[in-house]
Amino acid sequence: MSQSGSSEKILFLRRAIAAIEARGGQGNARYGRIGYGRLNERPRRFGSVSRDPFERLLDEGAVGGMSEIVPARPGDEAAAAGFAFALALRRLSMRPRSGVVWIAEDMVAREIGLPYAKGLEAAGVDPERLVLVRTRRPRETLWAMEETLKSKAVAAVVAETWIAPGAYGLEASRRLVVAARRGAGAGLLLLAKAAGEAARFTSAAPTRFEVASSVVQRAGADAFARARRLPSPGPPAWRARIVKARAGPFGAGADCDPSCWRDLVFDPDKALLRYALPLRFPAALGDRPDSSPAAQRLCGGRRSV
């Protein structure tokens, strides 16, 4: 957690209990049975330093900055967009009054679709805080992103572009970095066309993530195989690595290993990413608690999985 000692832990536990109570005593059934790695339980305040360079980078981006997100393979564009969304949501949770601008290029919309408000809502963001901007060409996307980054009212900008990595170079990225420094929001540029080329092009952006869809190792997969049934998918998960991290104010960089892939799970309730450990299976649909009020009354609200 952090250096400040036990009082912060107690605060965290209190909040966890409050959250359980708020859910009607259902308990933390939702995540309680799944193993997670280190908890990064809430966004840090400015200035507090985490020990993990990866976390630190996520936080650093949160106070303004510009990151590039590149899919690892063709077909991972949606995963990369999901990761970008998770980062944006994290930033949004730090600035509750501001909005997110999502810039989607027509070509990207054709490839992986447009952001879907019901899905955003399911992931825990109020779609009312989102402004969707549709652009025709990469030039327009970059311009719109630069304008948005300069604005003070935006917590994060997610721009999805189909620009060729060769066309997106030092000059274009430098403009964005400077704009991000002037403004208050964080810029997340998804280079959808550069799949697999994360290490092969240069830009002025301080951070670059490479994201793939995650193959989570499930414990007990053989039990399902014996029963000839398919398990159900768990919470959204990605594999990410830091391809590039310029030494920022917190001195990231040296200890970021570009070859180290990290499995991440997104928790929409708290708007944060966690390290994923091998997942146990979520209970099959029939075995899950009935959440209708009648059933809860029947079980005194105590039934859990």
């Binding site: 939702r30 679709g113 879907y116 019901k118 899905g119 955003l120 998918p233």
Partner: peptide, 8 residues
């Protein structure tokens, strides 16, 4: 555990 609706 899986989201009910897709992001895209």
């Amino acid at each position: 555990l899986a989201p009910l609706r897709p992001l895209r």
